[in-house]
C-alpha cells in the first residue's frame, strides 16, 4: 500500500448490556475527504464516533488510520498523543464540553503545550491564529466559557480540536445544540476550515440539510447498520434504500404530512 489510505473502518461492533448498538459498521474516509453519517436518534452514530476516538472500546471490528491500527488501547504517552493527533472530536453540546474553570484561550494553549511542547516561542501566536480561524479574538480568549454564547463556545471547541492538528475531525451533531441562525455560521466556518486545512471531516448528524451542505459522501445508519452509502448528492436525490427515502420524507417542508410519515415508519421497511 502506498501513501495515506485515510480512515478505514471495518465491521465495527458494540453492545451495551446485551443490546447491540453498533452492528458491523464499515466505511472509508479518504484523506482530506468528508463523510456524513446520518440516521435517527439511537441508530449508533454517536457510539461509532466515540469508538473512533477511544472513548468506548469496540467489541469487534477494526479501525485503521493511514494503515495504523487503532483498535488497541494505546500504551504510554507517545502512543496516546499519536492517537490523539489522528482523530479529534467536537462534542454535540458546547455548554458542557468546555472546562468551566479554564479561560478558553488557556484551554487551547494546553492542547498545544501537550502536543507541540517545543514551539514555546510561537505558542501564543498559534493560539491566536486558531482562535482567529474560528472568528474569535483576544477578548474572548480571556473569558471563561460561561461568559460566551453557545455559538462562541462551539467555535472554541472547534479551535481546541484543531489545535492538535488532527488528520480527521469528527463533528458529533456539532450544530444540533445551536440556534438555526448560528448553525449556518458554524457550517460556513467549518466549510472554510476544511478548504484551508485539508483535515478530513466525519460529520455525524440527524440533519440531512447539514450533511448536504458539508459532505461529499454519506453513509445512512439504521439500527447500528449501514444501509446505504454513496455520494451525498446522489443518495439524497435518488435514495436506493427505502429507509433513506423515509428519512428524506421526514424532513419538514411545504406539503409535508407528518401522519403519512409516521404511518410509513410503522410499516416494516
Amino acid at each position: 500500500m502506498s501513501g495515506p489510505t485515510g480512515l478505514v473502518v471495518e465491521g465495527l461492533r458494540k453492545g451495551f448490556g446485551g443490546r447491540t448498538v453498533v452492528d458491523g459498521v464499515s466505511f472509508t474516509l479518504p484523506p482530506g475527504g468528508s463523510l456524513g453519517i446520518v440516521g435517527e436518534s439511537g441508530c449508533g452514530k454517536t457510539t461509532t464516533a466515540r469508538m473512533l476516538v477511544g472513548l468506548e472500546r469496540a467489541d469487534g471490528g477494526t479501525v485503521h488510520l493511514d494503515g495504523v491500527d487503532r483498535s488497541m488501547r494505546p500504551r504510554g504517552r507517545a502512543g496516546r498523543l499519536e492517537r490523539a493527533r489522528g482523530i479529534q472530536l467536537v462534542f454535540q453540546d458546547p455548554y458542557v464540553s468546555l472546562d468551566p474553570r479554564i479561560p478558553v484561550g488557556a484551554c487551547i494553549e494546553e492542547v498545544r503545550r501537550l502536543h507541540f511542547p517545543l514551539d514555546r516561542a510561537d505558542r501564543r501566536h498559534r493560539v491566536a491564529e486558531l482562535l482567529d480561524q474560528v472568528g474569535l479574538g483576544e477578548r474572548e480568549a480571556a473569558e471563561l466559557p460561561r461568559r460566551l454564547s453557545g455559538g462562541q463556545r462551539q467555535r472554541v471547541a472547534i479551535a481546541r480540536a484543531l489545535a492538535a492538528e488532527p488528520k480527521v475531525l469528527i463533528l458529533d451533531e456539532a450544530v444540533a445544540a445551536l440556534d438555526v441562525s448560528i448553525q449556518a455560521q458554524i457550517l460556513d466556518l467549518l466549510a472554510g476550515i476544511r478548504r484551508a486545512s485539508g483535515v478530513a471531516f466525519l460529520f455525524v448528524s440527524h440533519d440531512l440539510a447539514v450533511v448536504r451542505h458539508l459532505t461529499e459522501e454519506v453513509a445512512v445508519l439504521r439500527g447500528g447498520r449501514v444501509v446505504e452509502t454513496g455520494p451525498t448528492v446522489r443518495v439524497l436525490t435518488e435514495p436506493q434504500h427505502p429507509y433513506t427515502r423515509l428519512l428524506l420524507d421526514s424532513v419538514p417542508r411545504r406539503g409535508w404530512d407528518p401522519g403519512r410519515i409516521a404511518a410509513g415508519r410503522r410499516a416494516p421497511a
Binding site: V53, G54, L55, R80, L81, R83, A84, R85, Q88, L89, F91, Q92, D93, V96, S97, L98, D99, P100, E110, V111, L114, H115, A157, R160, A164
Partner: peptide, 10 residues
C-alpha cells in the same frame, strides 16, 4: 464531555 474532551486530547 468536558473531561472526556481531555481524554480525546491525549
Amino acid at each position: 464531555p468536558y473531561l472526556e474532551s481531555y481524554r480525546v486530547q491525549g
